[in-house]
């Protein structure tokens, strides 16, 4: 296996301030593999996905580091070329299926636009492909759904549409940004299975962003734990759940509800763990400032 996505020493900050949002993040995702990216709200999980796709908010700038897609350094490229490469090889499954779809357009063109505009397919081919894809994500009667508006579909159906649309152009890398957080548990299970099925069939490299360690254990082979924009642990999934190495990972794991264990009280992440890991972050910052 080769690493399709490599992030090396990536730091990002709000423009004009010295405080980093991402702190020298390094991680990789191999082709055919799902890597989980886990952390609490505000840890910078989504920020990493956005940095890879080149859709960071305009107030955030990358101050150091490399993002390599198939060996090519994205940040060293001219913008046009970078956009073309990302558009042709990477895709996003967004979190909220309602806001990610345009409410005033039918589903069909929302899937085919990319194929026609970026990849130069004919409208006819794109439409055939869209119907195939909806079939692939187990939507009955694809023609009817292609002609529907987003509000006519349920949350689970909308998420299926977005998954189909992400896989439309046979991407080599898919970034899934909390794709099941807005869904209820039974639909979440179906959608997780579907994502796994599509990822395996297409041999895609996938970065799976989530705060839910239960979900990670179902879909990822490896995971990266993030705190305040800093990687605190990288591990294989079976090792991690058997024996998390970092105190923060342990705390996160014990905060995850397990209905099979009724009388263990839920333990929120302990304040001493937070201050220990915050000190680690500060030490890393001092070192970084010293080097620059």
């Amino acid at each position: 296996m080769t690493a399709f996505l490599e992030i090396e020493n990536l730091s990002a900050a709000i423009k004009g301030t010295p405080d980093r949002l991402l702190r020298s993040v390094s991680l990789h995702v191999n082709s055919g593999e799902v890597c989980g990216l886990v952390g609490e709200s505000g840890a910078g999980k989504s920020m990493i996905g956005k940095a890879v796709l080149g859709i960071l908010p305009s107030a955030v700038e990358i101050v150091e580091g490399q993002v390599r897609l198939d060996g090519e350094d994205l940040l060293a490229m001219p913008q046009r070329e970078r956009r073309r490469l990302i558009g042709a090889t990477a895709a996003l499954i967004p979190q909220d299926p309602l806001t990610a779809l345009n409410p005033s357009r039918r589903i069909g063109p929302q899937i085919t636009d990319r194929l026609v505009d970026i990849l130069g397919w004919t409208k006819h081919d794109a439409r055939t492909r869209a119907a195939e894809l909806l079939d692939e994500v187990h939507i009955e009667n694809p023609q009817r759904v292609l002609a529907s508006y987003p509000h006519e579909l349920s949350g689970g159906m909308r998420q299926r549409v977005l998954i189909a649309s992400a896989f439309a152009a046979n991407p080599k890398l898919v970034i899934a940004d909390e794709p099941t957080t807005a869904l209820d548990v039974t639909v979440q299970k179906q959608i997780l299975r579907l994502i796994r099925e599509m990822q395996e069939r297409h041999g895609t490299a996938m970065l799976f962003v989530t705060h839910d360690l239960g979900v990670v254990s179902k879909i990822c082979q490896r995971l990266v734990v993030l705190f305040a924009g800093m990687v605190v642990e990288k591990a294989g999934v079976s090792d991690f759940y058997a024996n998390p190495a970092h105190a923060y990972s342990k705390a996160l794991l014990s905060a995850t509800p397990k209905f099979t264990e009724p009388f263990t009280s839920l333990t929120p992440v302990d304040q001493t763990v937070i201050s220990a890991v915050s000190e680690q972050v500060e030490a890393a910052d001092r070192e970084w400032r010293h080097a620059h």
Binding site: Q188, Y241, F259
Partner: peptide
């Protein structure tokens, strides 16, 4: 069905 659909933090959970 609702119970089985809950993802436990355990890679070997049956039914997944």
């Amino acid at each position: 069905e609702l119970l089985d659909a809950i993802p436990l933090p355990d890679p070997d959970q049956p039914g997944w």
